[in-house]
Design a protein around this nucleic acid. Structure first.
Length: 628
DNA sequence: GTTAGGG
DNA sequence: CCCTAAC
């Protein structure tokens, strides 16, 4: 006997089209089609459920027939194990899976169960399924389009694009797995030559709920990564699109079903989702197109430009498809998705807004004053800055990795800033530059600091990076009125809640001419960027001609384009070069500087030292003469 | 803003 | 690289 029915429960009611008792194939097909057209797209789960369904059907018919029907229909036979099965889990995953997204409309316990089962039986996160298929009764390769057929039912041409290879190969395996308390575990591994593999598993257990887990890599195997992209859309519920390699066919994955919604949320790390939601719900009054909607619209160009956008959502979504373009990531992408860097902006803070109110003012008027100060700042166009290790990342074209933003490091030093374009002559004086004041200090020192976050962050322990925005002190050409963004773990963060402007009766915001306001940027050491040999050479050349001491000129001459090299840096480097050149080669560290360069360093150093000495002598001479 | 020098 | 005095 074989699987007679599937029992779905818990929120998949509108997701699972095939949740129907056995019916004539034609009928079920019609149902599926209707469902499909209604949604205007397919969902991976439906698709796979259908694949499983087909397999089961084939299995069923196999009990009386042989493998290939006379009609040429592809059938797959598996031995009748005599077990009554209920479909318990349909698992879809690529051969190389990075992560499962568990979707369950059922209770957490069921979810846990599903997880356990996955952990127990799915040691196949690598490319080897043998580990879980210990007792293969049957392995059958069918050069077949069976899976294609099932998929095509739901997706039309899309899967042709992805799986349109007739070499699709199907392995069927059935096993007994008593240790799980399962009467039977059948594993159907549908694997095409290109991978990913679709592994449809039918578990038998007494519970009535169904757990679905599938990998977000369904159509996104490492080997295909360069060709398959995850797109995003304006509609959250059709949040992702998978595109084929020509990027012309897009498949909306969604329907309005809660389950899909849930699944999408699972596919997206929660904090991003929530930020996305938040940004959608709370529009930013930034004047750049009325907030979130415009952000989403901008995303149309998501593949056109490798650049970071000012909204976190956009930025983090882009992470999903940064895989193949950056060679630095390749090492990882050969195994899995690129690491996702998780951002969560808990709050934006505006420290040191100075508001003056008379003692007799009411609290309400104080609130209004503060609000006006804030809205005055936020009124103009906002820009978002990204700070890494306190250094503002100015090059929007750099990848996160190149900018030192990675999953495993630096996140504690990551920050976002809001940079309003203050109107000319604004009376608002925000802090000016002051290194070495951290946010805590700053906030403590600033009774009028505003937390405009409304951030409701239930910290979840799995995010190790409560980060504080910081900004470096130097190299700021812009008028830098920045607000730090506190990047924190989040679960239920409402990123930005901005109250509307209130009446203009508010009290004056005091221009702080008397107090050299401190920029609220928080100094953090820049990332170390050792000088390359070519940089050293450029430096040496410049110093040879200009002399040691004219560092600004040296900068302009040789490092004008290197924003990360200040003239102070050049001066420091020269200092270390002189030192390096004067010590034994064995004592030198770092990338070896060619000896000839070091020789030139010493020569130039000697020359300009002497020159300087001469200058000093002249100067002293002159002063002496003047005194006489 | 630059320079110089200690940390 | 940072910090900062001194210009």
């Amino acid at each position: 006997m074989v699987v007679k029915k599937r029992t779905y429960s818990g929120g998949f009611h509108d997701l699972l089209a095939p949740v129907i008792p056995r019916a004539p194939r034609s009928l079920r097909r019609r149902i599926l089609r209707n469902k499909s057209s209604e949604d205007g797209g397919i969902c991976a789960f439906e698709l796979l459920a259908d694949v499983a369904d087909k397999l089961l059907q084939e299995q069923e018919s196999e009990s009386s027939t042989s493998s290939i029907s006379s009609k040429g229909k592809r059938q797959i036979s598996i031995p009748d194990d005599g077990i009554k099965n209920e479909l318990r889990e349909v698992k879809v995953k690529p051969v190389v899976s990075e992560q499962h997204i568990l979707v369950s409309g059922a209770e957490p316990t069921n979810l846990d169960l599903s997880l356990k089962e996955s952990q127990h039986s799915d040691n196949d996160s690598g490319s080897d399924h043998a580990s879980i298929i210990t007792n293969a009764d049957l392995i059958k390769k069918v050069n077949s389009n069976l899976i294609m057929e099932a998929i095509e039912e739901k997706s039309g041409n899309l899967c042709n694009a992805n799986y349109g290879d007739n070499s699709t190969e199907i392995h069927l395996k059935a096993i007994e797995e008593q240790s799980l308390g399962l009467t039977s575990v059948k594993t159907y591994s549908l694997k095409d030559h290109l991978e990913p593999c679709v592994n449809t598993r039918v578990l038998n257990k007494s519970a009535s709920s169904v757990h679905l887990s599938f990998c977000k890599d369904l159509f996104h195997s490492p080997r295909h990564r360069g060709n398959v992209k995850v797109n995003s859309r304006d509609d959250d519920e059709k949040y992702f699109r998978y595109t084929n390699r020509s990027n012309t066919r897009l498949r909306g994955l969604g329907s309005r079903s809660r389950a899909r919604y849930t699944r999408m949320r699972k596919m997206i790390p929660s904090r991003y989702w929530k930020v996305a939601q938040t940004l959608r719900d709370y529009e930013l009054p930034n004047g750049t197109g009325s907030g979130a909607k415009s952000f989403y619209q901008k995303r149309k160009n998501i593949y056109m430009r490798e650049r970071f956008q000012a909204d976190v959502v956009y930025k983090r979504r882009k992470l999903f498809h940064q895989s193949s373009r950056n060679p630095c990531i390749k090492k990882e992408s050969s195994e899995s998705m690129p690491n996702l860097v998780k951002f969560s902006i808990k709050s934006f803070k505006v420290p040191e807004l100075y508001v003056e109110v008379p003692e007799t003012a009411t609290v309400g008027s104080l609130k209004r004053s503060v609000m006006e100060a804030v809205t005055a700042i936020l009124h103009g166009q906002l820009h978002v800055g990204v700070l890494v290790q306190g250094k503002k990342v100015r090059d929007d074209n750099r990848t996160l990795q190149q900018s030192g933003i990675s999953k495993n490091c630096n996140l504690e030093s990551l920050g976002f800033t809001l940079e309003p374009s203050l109107p000319e002559g604004s009376s608002l004086l925000l802090q000016q530059e002051t290194p070495s004041c951290n946010m805590q200090e700053q906030l403590c020192r600033s009774p009028s600091s505003l937390d405009i976050s409304g951030g409701l962050s239930n910290s979840s322990a799995d995010h190790p990076f409560p980060a504080t925005a910081m900004e470096n002190r130097v190299e700021t050409n812009e008028v830098s009125t920045t607000f730090a963004a506190e990047v924190t773990p989040l679960e239920d963060s409402k990123a930005l809640v901005l109250a509307p402007a209130v009446d203009a009766e508010a009290l004056a915001v005091v221009p702080l001419s008397e107090k050299p306001a401190k920029k609220f940027e928080f100094s953090q050491r820049r990332t170390r960027r050792p000088f390359s040999v070519s940089e050293v050479e450029a430096l040496v050349e410049a110093v040879e001609t200009l002399g040691a001491g004219r560092w600004r000129d040296v900068k302009m001459r040789a490092f004008d384009d290197a924003n990360h090299r200040t003239y102070v840096d050049l001066k420091d480097k020269w200092k270390t070069l002189v030192h390096t050149a004067s010590i034994a080669p064995q004592q030198r560290r770092g990338e070896p500087v060619p000896q000839d360069l070091l020789d030139r360093v010493l020569a130039a150093h000697a020359y300009w030292s002497q020159h300087q000495a001469k200058q000093h002598a002249k100067k002293n001479q002159k002063t002496l003469e003047a005194q006489m």
